[in-house]
């Protein structure tokens, strides 16, 4: 009943989209992480003029669909081609590839900044006070005490974020990028075998998620060896 030959045929075709899925995920996670860190740190002070625009940015990017954000950046900004060309960043918004990365990174920056803000808040106050008492500067405290602890605590939440990002990259297929989901859609309309293609593409995504979860769990265990109980 199950047509193994068909699976053997489509799995390599689908896997050809894996590098693009991985590339989009990695690029957007890395850029998004650094933006998120900047946004989270900028909110540590209490200057309203800094905090207010960041809160607005976070609320907008978390409160609207990713697809709208992608379309706004890819099609919407395309309307301003002459101005974008004038300031020399048109190359960025001309390519669907860069547009997808810009949209995914900004989206991730919004979600990630909230995770990091929470993680920084969760660092016990006594530790920063102890650092100040030891004569450490603010920057040194941040670098040696606050950030290592905050980032370590953020790992479980970031694991979820990476999984969401892997899923989010599938939207790039709507602006013509042939990653796994894009290829899957093409295969379905060619072969008319939606269930088989879904099973094969789904298996690739689940394997990818499993690998990511295992890797980050291992990282967390390594960074918090005292928490592991036999």
């Amino acid at each position: 009943m199950i047509d193994f030959a068909f699976f053997l045929e489509i799995i390599p075709v689908l896997l050809a989209g894996l590098p693009l899925t991985l590339l989009l995920t990695t690029a957007s996670m890395v850029i998004g992480f650094f933006l998120a860190l900047l946004l989270a740190l900028a909110q540590q002070g209490n200057r309203r003029i800094v905090i207010w625009p960041i809160r607005a940015f976070v609320a907008v990017f978390r409160g609207t669909p990713l697809l709208v954000q992608i379309f706004l950046i890819y099609y919407g900004l395309g309307q301003f081609r002459p101005s974008l060309q004038a300031i020399g960043i048109w190359w960025l918004f001309r390519e669907p590839y860069w547009c997808a990365i810009v949209a995914l990174s900004l989206n991730e920056a919004a979600y990630g900044s909230e995770i990091l803000r929470g993680a920084i808040k969760a660092v016990p106050r006594g530790l920063t006070e102890a650092a100040t008492a030891s004569g450490m500067s603010k920057l040194l405290t941040l670098r040696l005490i606050v950030l290592p602890l905050a980032l370590r605590n953020a790992i479980p939440n970031y694991t979820n974020e990476i999984i969401l990002m892997v899923k989010g990259t599938s939207l790039a297929s709507i602006i013509t990028l042939m990653e796994i989901t894009g290829i899957a859609q093409g295969l379905i309309s060619q072969t008319y075998r939606a269930v088989e293609v879904f099973v094969a593409a789904g298996a690739i995504y689940l394997a990818l998620n499993f690998a990511i979860i295992s890797a980050l769990n291992a990282l967390e265990t390594r960074l918090t060896p005292y928490r592991v109980r036999a």
Partner: peptide
């Protein structure tokens, strides 16, 4: 929860 929602939508609609 692990598969992109777009893929699920394609499965249901085309399937």
């Amino acid at each position: 929860r692990g598969v992109p929602d777009l893929l699920t939508i394609y499965l249901l609609y085309y399937g």
